[in-house]
Design a protein around this nucleic acid. Structure first.
Length: 520
RNA sequence: GAUCCCGUAGCUCAGCUGGCAGAGCAUCUGACUUUUAAUCAGAGGGUCGCAGGUUCGAGCCCUGCCGGGAUCACCA
């Protein structure tokens, strides 16, 4: 065990003293009849009175939560009880509690951070605060570590824990002391349940497909590799769900969706966590035009559920998710921002323009890559309101269907919002011969050294397509990035409960060294 | 992977030109039966991220390492 701080020693001693008195510091249940927020909403000064007051009803409740502040004044005390809904002040009086409890247990052995159950009646103090007058008070869980104490006055917080590392590593503490963090994750949950309900209501079936895959595909990214012992074979953690979900469309479902963790073995940043949540769905007999209408409706619905309006404040911008969103062809977007129309231009012409625009160019970059660079630098960061960028070059999109009118393009869109990609969707490529050709082009790229291109053709996926996949529209939506927008958070780590961090140094160095040393 | 910034008590932070390690909250002792950042009186609490170096002397300067943040690179 780590060496105990002074405050921890005090708490360990309190724990022992409680046991000594026959009080179990970790009892089994407490009958909760109300939450703090219910009480604050439900108390009515006209109607409710203290026991013995004529013509008034006594509002009795039983709550449970953490002691977060303690103001002791001799024979009576106030403390703030925080539960999942908020906080309620409790008034504890020596003479209203069992003999000795107030002086010897409450004052001496209960600390900030301890979880307690309180039963009593609600009244309003002289200062006008709705308060629970305790008639019964029990310890439900002793906190052996001191919780950082955050004080508040007139809407301002003092001594708030600001250290991001502390907050991410000990998210349980972050959630306990920062109510706005709980709010973020409630909003995230609401966002996901809204999406689920919307898809369910449209008869799109929720399915589960493999996380462990013998071949990975559906995106360009480096995978995590693991190993199955019994089969003695490598397995990859999925980087996307796409190819399995489309097999299910082949199988005859009209629509399927999956909300899943995907894994990409890449760097960490404000926008990237190695495991992240992806929503993908595929709907038969539809194309990307239908998908744009559907996506607008879905995301506007999410914004409205969360905020009561499709307008969302994101950083300095007010972003409106109300439909319709602007639909802007990829090449027109580049033309608009740079003045160069590159549609139909050769690789060399595009490279010339890129050089003129001071975009880094080298010989290994194909035209797709060059266009992507120009787009990423001159267009993407400037699109704040949600915008459909449509009709991408074929080279960038090995799983998308060729454009019905324009040669060299595919029917694909991305939604860009607040300067970042949130969705990627296509009319799905269902021609097995075309798909084989695109896979072969990927393999060629991989052999040329692109470590993100697929290096193996998924023959089973092609076999599925050869049986016939109906025309299908499909989309992937990055749930974490959508959450960042919807909840106005600037870092993906603030919308993921336990983001990946480097491991902490072992608490006891000497012990682990002894274990790992063969000579010890 | 690169660059810049940060790491001091449980928490928030100060620490000057290198000269005894500081404050508020929390903790402990005492007072106080409607307080609310409760108040009043007193006390204790430190591997200054880690390891070296320079110096009579290092929280402060130098080097390396560890951890975090931001930006970039990477990222269909």
């Amino acid at each position: 065990m780590h060496p105990l701080s002074e405050q921890e020693q005090v708490r360990h001693e309190a724990h022992a003293a409680l046991v000594e008195r026959g009080i179990n510091p970790y009892p089994y249940t407490w009958n909760v009849t109300a939450h703090a927020a219910d009480v604050l909403a439900g108390y009515d000064e006209e109607k409710h009175g203290v026991p013995g007051e004529d013509g008034k009803e006594v509002y009795r409740v039983s709550l449970a939560g953490r002691i977060m502040t303690k103001r002791v004044m001799g024979k009576a005390a106030f403390f703030d009880l925080h539960d999942s809904s908020g906080k309620l002040q409790v008034y504890a009086r020596r003479d209203d509690l069992p003999d000795g409890f107030y002086n010897e247990v409450f004052k001496r052995l209960l600390d900030i951070g301890d979880i307690v159950g309180v039963e009593g009646f609600i009244f309003k103090t002289r200062m006008g605060e709705v308060t629970l007058h305790a008639e019964r008070l029990e310890l439900l869980s002793k906190a052996l570590r001191p919780l950082p104490v955050v004080k508040e006055a007139e809407g301002k917080s003092y001594n708030e824990v600001t250290d991001k590392e502390f907050r991410y590593r000990q998210r349980y503490v972050d959630l306990t002391i920062n109510p706005e963090v709980r709010h973020v994750f409630r909003q995230r949950a609401k966002m996901i349940s809204t999406i689920r309900r919307f898809l369910d209501d449209h008869n799109i079936l929720e399915v589960e497909t493999p996380v462990l895959q013998p071949l990975y595909g559906g995106a360009a990214a480096r995978p995590f590799i693991t190993h199955h012992n019994a089969l003695d074979m490598p397995l990859y953690l999925r980087i996307a769900d796409e190819l399995y979900l489309k097999r299910l469309i082949v199988g005859g479902f009209d629509g399927v969706y999956e909300i899943s963790k995907d894994f990409r073995n890449e760097g960490l940043s404000r926008f990237h966590n190695p495991e992240f949540t992806m929503l993908e769905f595929y709907v038969a007999y539809k194309d990307y035009h239908w998908m744009m209408d559907f996506t607008e409706a879905l995301i506007a619905k999410v914004a409205t559920e969360l905020h009561g309006t499709p307008e969302v404040q994101v950083g300095d911008y007010t972003i409106s998710f109300a439909s319709p969103w602007r639909r802007l062809p990829f090449f027109d977007a580049i033309a608009e921002k740079t003045g160069h129309q590159l549609l139909g231009k050769s690789r060399e012409e595009i490279a010339d323009v890129a050089r003129k625009l001071h975009v880094h160019v080298d010989d290994t970059m194909g035209e797709g890559k060059l266009l992507d660079e120009i787009f990423g630098e001159f267009v993407e960061p400037h699109l704040i309101q949600p915008t459909f960028i449509i009709d991408y070059p074929v080279a960038l999109s090995p799983l998308a269907k060729r454009h019905r009118e324009v040669d060299g393009l595919v029917e694909r869109f991305e939604v860009i919002c607040n300067g970042k990609e949130v969705c990627n969707a296509f009319s799905e490529l269902n021609d097995p011969l075309d798909q084989r050709g695109r896979f072969e082009a990927q393999v060629a790229l991989a052999q040329a050294g692109d470590d993100e291109a697929l290096n193996t053709i998924d023959e089973d996926y092609l076999r599925a397509l050869e049986y016939g996949m109906p025309p299908t529209a499909g989309i992937g939506i990055g749930i974490d990035r959508l959450a960042m927008l919807m909840i106005n958070q600037t870092s993906i780590r603030d919308v993921i409960l336990f983001p990946l961090l480097r491991p902490e140094a072992p608490a006891d160095e000497t012990e682990s060294e002894e274990k790992s040393s063969p000579e010890a």
